[in-house]
Design a protein around this nucleic acid. Structure first.
Lengths: 215, 215
DNA sequence: TCAGTTCTATAGTGGTTGCTATACATAGCG
DNA sequence: CGCTATGTATAGCAACCACTATAGAACTGA
């Protein structure tokens, strides 16, 4: 749980002046919970401060502003909840069981009992006012990165001779990403764990039949 | 384009006092555009009024409040953009081509050039503040109705001997709905028309192999 | 013409938002 | 102890929100 700080500072304690009276990482996780539950704009500074156990000036001194706090929380969420599943998909040599277990993992992550469910990247900043465009763009680029991640893994599957060379990688990656994002909405809308796992199990059918060619 | 009014009033003109100075249906469509573009909460009364060409008192006299205006706009959207696709799926006797062309229709609807894309029911009120709970519940129940619609059509497919009797209808309906909702997010994020059509074409693979039994 | 009724426009209401000015507290360093 | 630097707490800023009170305008029916 000893994660590297996102701040560009080198050491944890330059130490001069009054030291900070709260744990920055812990406060960030509390903020994450609020954003997860409410979304970016509905989460107010007052509610964030209450959950973080601090006052507005401390929040602004430590995180800059609401948008930066949110982006840092999203980044933290993405790494904490999704890194393991991504690594597993990278390390699994066969793309078929790789995708299969990635979506099984996703079903479990999306119904994590910590929050009211669904992926923060997908749900927290879908409909925001025009003055929060930068936040919207940021989460959208994270979603695009997810699609690219699928595409790269599928490409490797083709190169390894598992997927047929005729596979339309861009479309298939978009299909998988759409499925993952739709599962977020199902999770938010209160689907049961067994049912979501069943949905995830359907995903493997979207892949083309295994290639009979060798690489 | 002569749609029945959602209001419980019987005739178009009870006529007494000063007549309304704007077309109610036209104003509703203008409001729909704003909600579609911005979402429920980011859309302000001022912006809605500008688009509708009226002032706040007229808006409140004609539609009640912001929440009622939104729900009426969503209802209008759902009927205008989705009724035809639903009817086609009902009337197609074979569930396989029925689902296939429903999703092809959906891909076209979701990239309708009218708005910045995606389904209003899915995207406009995903992350709202706690005081808009009734609006969130309303769109969520519309989403659930969409899932139920899929389930009923699949059930008929089983009864007609097209789908195998072993089909898990609840899970398959949830899978199709997740796909449809994920396509909304892809549309919002700027996917191309051909690519989204390709995604839609993948959906048919989610159905089990056609049953060989007769009804 | 003159009520009676309904819609419209101006101008605001109280409440909430993200954010901060000011004053004070707590640290290292001489 | 000062002196400087940084964090914290209170209180409040201007801007914006959904919504409405008031007054006047436009119609019907007599």
């Amino acid at each position: 749980m000893n994660l590297p700080s996102a701040a560009p500072s080198t050491v944890p304690r330059p130490s001069k002046g009054r030291p900070r009276g709260f744990d920055r990482s812990e406060a960030l996780e509390r903020a994450l919970d609020v954003f997860w539950r409410l979304g970016y704009e509905p989460a107010t500074i007052a509610e964030l401060c209450t959950a973080m156990g601090i006052n507005p000036p401390s929040l602004y001194a430590a995180f800059g502003n609401k948008a930066k706090l949110f982006l840092e929380a999203v980044d933290f969420y993405d790494r904490k909840y999704w890194d393991a599943a991504r690594v597993a998909l990278e390390e699994e040599a066969d793309v078929y069981p790789g995708i299969e277990s990635f979506f099984a993992d996703a079903a479990a992550i999306l119904l994590s009992p910590r929050a009211p469910c669904g992926c923060l990247v997908v749900l927290a900043a879908i409909n925001v006012s025009p003055e929060s465009t930068e936040v919207y763009e940021a989460v959208r680029s994270m979603r695009r990165a997810g699609k690219t991640f699928f595409a790269q893994r599928l490409q490797r599957g083709v190169e390894d001779g598992q997927l047929p060379a005729s596979t339309d990688i861009a479309v298939l990656a978009a299909t998988l990403k759409a499925m993952l994002e739709g599962m977020s909405i199902q999770a938010r809308d209160g689907i049961g764990q067994a049912e979501l796992a069943g949905v995830a199990a359907h995903v493997i059918k979207l892949l083309p039949p295994r290639s009979t060619q060798h690489p």
